[in-house]
Design a protein around this nucleic acid. Structure first.
Lengths: 210, 210
DNA sequence: TCATCAATCAATCATTTGATTGAGGTGTGG
DNA sequence: CCACACCTCAATCAAATGATTGATTGATGA
């Protein structure tokens, strides 16, 4: 829950970039805990272990701070998207890779999805945030569009499948799954299984799954 | 955007219940415009046309106010859910009825979904809101679960369909769609069409569509 | 050694914001 | 007409909050 890069206890200094990373991480943690409406510059400074004035030295305003968070989110997402090679795989393999990536992201850095949805919500009414978040979300969905397009071409996915709509359904289902604190206990495996069934060309009932 | 029940311009009074309705509506409008983090009691009072103290007379605290909004949301949703009879319909008809209901809700009271998602977000960290929103969201999803269960029993939906996961996919796709594409368009038809394809038994056996 | 600059902080400001107080008004039953 | 419940407001409070100021510290290069 604390900083990944601990701050030296004594009077040592941090570089500007490093500080901005600390600040973004602290802001994200607070957004997870108390939401955007509970985000206070003082709390962020306290969490980083610096004075409010120092925070304002590195990040001029609260608006800039939220933009910083959005940027850090984009950075993390893109870094994650490039970890696994996508070459020479079938559409189904790619789809499962995406599911695995999402599961891994959710497990390793669960706050990522929470902050993402919070900022996407904000993006609707804040153009500056929208400029960052919309391309990010579009990029994620575009990956699915491409997978579905390929799958249809391969013949492994339904012929009447609309890649754009299918991608929308998939990203929607995944994010909504994350919102699933409720009594509604569908497992992630059930969900992805169901998504596969929804898009795969149903052959005559022969066991084909590996 | 304004009150459904206009306030008499002169010094007339409103009944407590009516005032609370006005207040809830104003609060919802502001949440749509500025999000939960932009919700200010003064703005609500101004929108209703009353003094801040009067607002506090009717709704003791901001927390109670958000609870009021959640309650009003539940009221609207349940009223909407009971408009159309569900008896004697096939699963596919019921599914389409749900889609039509969603579309209608979005058209008539577009702020409903926005405020719903905002409060569901808040529900994760606020038990009082969770107590209201969780059953509400579960209720919506449970309707889909029942439809899918029926459809599988009827044989019109895939035999290997998991009702719970399918419901999650459906509610997720609908809410996520609405979150981003606030301009409602033909693509909604594409989305629902794709959802139908995803769940309907595709088939070699015979044509079964109506 | 010293000038310079990035980084930091204590103190403080000016608003904002949720909430309260006390003093009325308005309608209704008796 | 009175009393009483219900409703409303102007004025105000105390705390929270985003931001600024002016001074200080440590590192770096000339």
């Amino acid at each position: 829950m604390q900083h990944d890069t601990p701050i030296p206890p004594s009077g040592k200094r941090e570089s500007g970039d490093c500080r901005r990373l600390n600040i973004a991480a602290a802001a994200r943690a607070i957004i997870v805990e108390r939401g955007l409406e509970g985000l206070r510059t003082r709390d962020i400074a306290a969490r980083v272990g610096i004075n409010i004035a120092t925070l304002h030295y590195h990040v001029p305003s609260k608006e800039a701070l939220i933009t910083l968070v959005a940027d850090s989110l984009r950075h993390d997402f893109q870094a994650q998207a490039l970890r696994n090679s996508r070459d020479g795989k079938t559409a189904l393999e790619l789809l499962r890779l995406e599911f695995a990536d999402f599961r891994e992201t959710v497990h390793e850095t669960p706050e990522l999805i929470i902050v993402l949805t919070a900022l996407i919500e904000k993006a609707r009414r804040d153009p500056a945030i929208g400029a960052i978040m919309t391309p990010l979300y579009d990029f994620w969905r575009a990956q699915f569009v491409e997978i579905f397009r390929q799958g249809v071409a391969e013949g492994s996915f339904r012929a009447n499948l609309d890649p754009a709509s299918a991608a929308l359904i998939t990203t929607g289902a995944l994010t909504d799954y994350w919102r699933q604190w409720t009594s509604f206990r569908a497992s992630f495996d059930n969900l992805t299984q169901e998504l596969e069934h929804a898009f795969i060309a149903q052959t005559i009932p022969s066991k084909d799954q590996n």
